[in-house]
């Protein structure tokens, strides 16, 4: 038994070592740095301890940081709602048969395999004023001026559209897998009882899909809260602060302004907020699921 355990630990040890090195060590280092005032561009470039949790206390009053969090949450809620709605509709439609279904499913999945930075480039080429076809088409056919370098709302919604385009296929595929695996008995019973399609969807499909939905929501929520690459390429966080999500804000503070201590504190605080949001969401969904049972 002991020897069996030893073999198990031996086989697991590379994974554990890698997890410690690339997961725990950086995490605790960032946690440690977050308690110091440290900017290598300063007169004194060394790490300085200036009171307990100074950076965290400073962040509580940092309007730009707090606004970036609010902006990120707003972005996540909007994209998540759109992606779940569209993804569910697409997944349901892919359950039924229609001509060129396989072709549509393949094409629809393509955005998933594109790197976020490339997605940003594609959207930039399509939408940038002067070069991109979209502003020309919108202007010529609808008289609408698209200039997200100037218009903060357009910039925000352009990033929402980009994210929805990029990640809805993920939601669709995951939900499709869940829908395909649902047992058929409850549906047959419901039909015998005279339930219509809407009633079946609300009272049978949705409750049975809750576990899959929780997974999808968590993955997409965490991803959307840490969005950087696509935004970086498309708007750079502008105009002004309009698309300066927390990930971009932290990057700018750490790598442009070199506020390593403050930036580390921001990262930890943001991680904490993300965990809290996920925990609240999880609790709500699980308790609702239990009530419906």
């Amino acid at each position: 038994m002991l020897s069996k355990n030893k073999t198990g630990w031996l086989l697991l040890s590379p994974t554990i070592l890698i997890l410690i090195l690339v997961g725990l060590v950086p995490f605790f280092y960032v946690l440690y740095v977050g308690f110091f005032k440290w900017n290598p561009l300063a007169v004194d470039p060394s790490m300085q301890f200036e009171g307990f949790a100074l950076n965290y206390r400073r962040l509580i009053f940092d309007e730009v940081f707090l606004e970036s969090i609010w902006r990120s949450i707003k972005f996540s809620v909007v994209t998540l709602t759109l992606e779940l709605t569209l993804g569910f509709l697409l997944a349901l439609s892919l359950l039924s048969s229609f001509p060129l279904k396989s072709f549509f499913r393949s094409v629809h999945t393509l955005p998933l395999v594109i790197a976020p930075i490339v997605v940003g480039s594609i959207f930039k080429l399509f939408t940038v004023q002067g070069l991109g076809p979209l502003p020309h088409l919108l202007k010529d056919y609808f008289g609408y001026t698209l200039n997200y370098g100037l218009n903060a709302d357009q910039a925000f919604w352009m990033i929402v559209i980009m994210d929805v385009w990029h990640w809805t296929p993920f939601v669709t595929l995951t939900l499709l897998a869940g829908l395909s695996a649902l047992p058929q008995d409850p549906y047959e019973s419901a039909k015998i009882d005279g339930a219509n399609n809407f009633q079946i969807f609300v009272h049978i499909t949705i409750p049975m899909m809750v576990p899959v939905l929780i997974v999808v929501i968590f993955i997409r929520l965490m991803d959307s809260l840490k969005i950087v690459d696509e935004v970086w390429m498309l708007t750079g966080g502008g105009p002004g602060y309009a698309t300066r999500f927390t990930g971009i804000h932290i990057w700018k503070e750490v790598f442009e302004k070199r506020y390593y201590g403050l930036g580390s504190a921001m990262s930890i605080l943001y991680l904490y907020i993300t965990i809290v949001i996920c925990w609240v969401l999880y609790s709500v969904m699980v308790s609702r699921g239990k009530n419906e049972d």
Binding site: L150, A152, G238, P239, G240, Y241, K252, E253, E256, K257
Partner: peptide, 21 residues
């Protein structure tokens, strides 16, 4: 010596002026 940090502090204000905010 603080070039990046200084410019980074100014950036958002220039962006906002250009965007008319």
């Amino acid at each position: 010596p603080f070039h990046g940090a200084g410019r980074g502090a100014i950036d958002p204000f220039i962006y906002s002026a250009l965007a008319g905010e």
